[in-house]
Write a protein that binds this DNA or RNA. Structure first.
Length: 219
DNA sequence: GCGACAG
DNA sequence: ATCTTGTCGC
């Protein structure tokens, strides 16, 4: 898979903001991809007191959701966790992992926000843009925005709003559990993103892609 | 200035 | 994210 290296990763938050505002202009919010035969879940974990970042990519068949390939990458952690700058901490390792997967996925499901970000450039946008792949942001909690109550029925969702924009969807993937925050990362619309997240989810709150990637990133 | 704050 | 076993509830 081809990865673009458009900028450095050792940056100040001010420099990072400049990059987010520059790259966000290239994000495509329309569906620009073909048949999906493989979907990938991406997650990151930490080792050695957080000094080592460990990224995992789990490739599953679609729509049968069988794990068919995976990759893991480790590298020293060089950026702290700062809300709004998660990608600068996790993406370097994620790109290392994506670079080595044999099976090129057709769609990426990233842990974290996509457009549902204060500057509309969450980790799913960053990964999607640098790999030029369709990407969806799947977050377990809210970063920015407001929304109404989500009906307690699998598949129900309401829009997530922020400063007059619809930035994502709050989706109930399973009854009686906290909803997921879905947003476009790159080359996919919000409606289609929600449909694919549901297509990757079976009996649990998290999509199978995320569940597999999480296990690979942890132990 | 005071809270909120993905993983 | 991570430190961590059993346990309460749907």
């Amino acid at each position: 898979m081809q990865i673009q290296h458009r900028h450095e990763w050792a940056l100040t938050t001010d420099a990072a903001i400049a990059i987010q505002q520059e790259l966000r202009q290239e994000i495509v919010t329309q569906d620009r991809f073909g048949v999906v035969n493989y979907v990938a879940g991406i997650d990151v974990g930490f080792e050695e007191e957080g000094t080592i970042t460990r990224a995992a990519v789990a490739v599953l068949t679609y729509p049968t959701l069988q794990l068919c390939d995976h990759a893991i990458a480790r590298r020293p952690t060089t950026f702290p966790y700062i809300p709004g700058f998660l990608s600068f901490r996790e993406v370097p390792a994620v790109l290392d992992a994506l670079e080595t997967v044999k099976t090129t996925p057709d769609l990426l499901l990233c842990d974290g926000q996509g457009l549902a970000h204060p500057r509309r450039f969450g980790i799913a946008c960053h990964v999607g843009l640098l790999t030029n792949m369709p990407a969806i942001g799947v977050a377990k909690s809210l970063l920015v925005g407001k929304h109404g109550e989500v009906p307690d029925q699998r598949g129900a969702w309401v829009s997530l709003q922020h400063k007059g924009d619809t930035i994502g969807a709050v989706l109930r993937t399973r009854p009686q559990t906290k909803p997921l925050y879905i947003s476009s990362g790159h080359r996919i619309s919000l409606e289609t993103a929600v449909a694919y997240v549901m297509g990757c989810t079976t009996k649990y709150r998290l999509p199978e892609t995320t569940r597999h990637a999480h296990k690979l990133a942890s132990g």
